[in-house]
Nucleic acid binder design. Structure first.
Lengths: 343, 343
DNA sequence: CTGTTAGCGCTTTCAT
DNA sequence: ATGAAAGCGCTAACAG
């Protein structure tokens, strides 16, 4: 491999017969300095001719900006969620910023990677994507501290923090669940099973409240809340048990689409016709919902928008240090398919 | 926001009563310099006390290494594929390198983002993940040029380049397809439908060859190759048409799992029993395969390993410039589920 | 064994 | 309208 000599702004300056400063002014389109059109042209041409690319590390060192943001998410996060979110982020940050994936592994500095990255100036800010609180309860306080006390530009996406001091873009799980339940009730369902995971998170609380509120607004609706294990085998067992009592209800709401898939699968197995015997609706969607049989009615989470809005928020913080913290809540959308019908 | 004065190695040096060089030596554990244990301790303690984090941009500028790698993939890539690959990459690059997501959008430099990132030293090398050639045929030559002529450290993951000059980690689509077809034949299937996308890629050619070779090894097997449109509606139409002639064959192979989902769905709709009337197998897998009814038999692609091996390769190139290019091929694994049975 | 010092490539203030 | 020069924080060759 032959040693490649980097083309620097000095080279461009020489080639164009100007100084490095001028090159910088022109290439960065600096406001407040006016430069002759002819010089401008010369410099731009010289840069092109030599194949000049400013060294981003040198720029970063000088300007104290890495021009990168970090995204942190637990590994075991639902995969779909992650990618759609990422797409949203990309769409909002533009060409100048890049995305660095951060883990929360403790590194050689004794801190989680995202923290070290920030401290080492590898990233300018952090986007937290729905860390699952029940998995690491205590961390939230650390995050809050980082955001409020340490003044690290952070946006929490898909968090429900209720804290006016931090930037938070939340999904309205409450309203999504409310819509889903209302939809069922409007369609004449009066006995409804509600399948939730067997642990409690803010998210699940919101959903539960949404479902309950919808139910309570109507007389004589019976809601049977049933926490089920997230363990695969146990989940299946529980679903079979529930399906065996199908006469006691006419509709099932599930917190996750995965649960709904299991319901649909087992219903087939047991020869129970969906939606004729039971309607099924999930409080989250995925790309597979159009392939289940029957196609699954869901309440879709606004993941792309989540990424977009969170990133916008973060960009604001980075460009204008006086931005006030904001809590935003994004609505879900009900997507009616074939797994639900009226009575 | 109060102006935060960065803690530099100078500060640490002062605090510990040594010079900046010593601090650097100790903190970077530089080989070939021996330093008194007591000094070492002093410095480490000082660093901890002051909360010193080396500025990665300064380090990068100095060492000429960004300690980041870029990953490039078309947007419309299957989502699952992306994340599993990423997991593999993460597992291989360790704590010191980070992952930057790159698009192939042309930026203000007039080049695709990944190229500019490299030229600007934001990344040290590039991982290309299965760009879909049929979407941008001409690009491959650019990549090859970048890799061979420009000497940019690049690894092609899920490419079938047949080029000993570049690093390439490929998936053995041929063998996967061969296995799948053989499996069907071994189970007594003699008339097989083979559903492919209606465009031709290296990947599909490999698969086709695999299926054909398996078929040709046996007497009297009839293979009906059927390209179908990737347009959703047309795909459904085609599948219905095919299912209507179910007496003419006993098994279906699909290139993609998405196609198999459609087959399964439409079979339900038409009251055709899978696997009793028709066996179905897909030449790629996804997380959803255990939720289809019946659960789908697939040939799983080694995506995690793909990420892992590609990243290992890239790491080699970055640490040892004399690494010779290598073409690696990773095997698929047949995962038998319920959509196939013997005759 | 430890310190001095010269840059890495860039931006930006100040001078002209 | 343009140039000179300081310095961001670090590493590493060289000195001692």
């Amino acid at each position: 491999m032959k040693k490649f000599k980097r083309v620097t702004s000095m080279d461009v300056a020489k080639e164009a017969g100007v100084s490095r400063a001028t090159v910088s002014y022109i290439l960065n389109d600096v406001q407040g300095v006016s430069i002759k059109e002819s010089t401008k042209k010369k410099v731009i041409q010289a840069a092109k001719k030599l194949g000049y690319y400013p060294d981003s590390m040198a720029v970063a060192l000088k300007t104290n900006k890495a021009m990168s943001i970090g995204i942190v998410s637990k590994r075991n996060i639902s995969e779909q969620r992650y990618i759609k979110f990422l797409d949203g982020v990309k769409s909002a940050i533009g060409d100048n910023y890049s995305i660095i994936l951060c883990s929360d592994h403790v590194d050689n500095f004794g801190y989680p990677e995202y923290y070290s990255y920030y401290k080492r100036k590898k990233i300018d800010g952090i986007l937290f994507l729905s860390f699952q609180e029940h998995l690491a309860e205590e961390k939230i306080d650390d995050y809050l501290h980082m955001s409020v006390e340490e003044n690290i530009p952070i946006v929490f996406a898909d968090y429900h923090l209720n804290n006016q001091m931090v930037n938070c873009v939340d999904i309205n799980y409450y309203h999504g669940a409310y819509m889903a339940a209302s939809y069922l009730i409007k369609n004449g369902h009066e006995e409804i099973i509600y399948l939730t995971p067997d642990f409690d998170t803010e998210q699940e609380q919101q959903r539960r409240k949404g479902v309950e509120d919808a139910v309570n607004e109507h007389k004589g609706i019976k809601l049977i809340k049933t926490p089920i294990s997230t363990d695969n085998d146990k989940e299946i067992e529980a679903v079979i048990e529930i399906l065996s009592k199908k006469d006691e209800y006419s509709a099932i709401i599930t917190s996750w689409s995965k649960m709904a898939y299991t319901v649909l699968y087992q219903a087939q197995q047991l020869n129970i016709s969906i939606p004729n015997e039971i309607s099924v609706i999930a409080l989250a969607g995925s790309n597979f919902d159009v392939y289940t049989y029957p196609r699954l009615t869901t309440c879709n989470l606004p993941l792309f928008e989540l990424g977009q809005k969170s990133a916008e928020r973060l960009m604001n913080m980075l460009t204008d240090t006086n931005t006030l913290p904001l809590n935003i809540t994004l609505p879900c959308k009900l997507k009616e398919r074939d797994s639900t019908k009226g009575i």
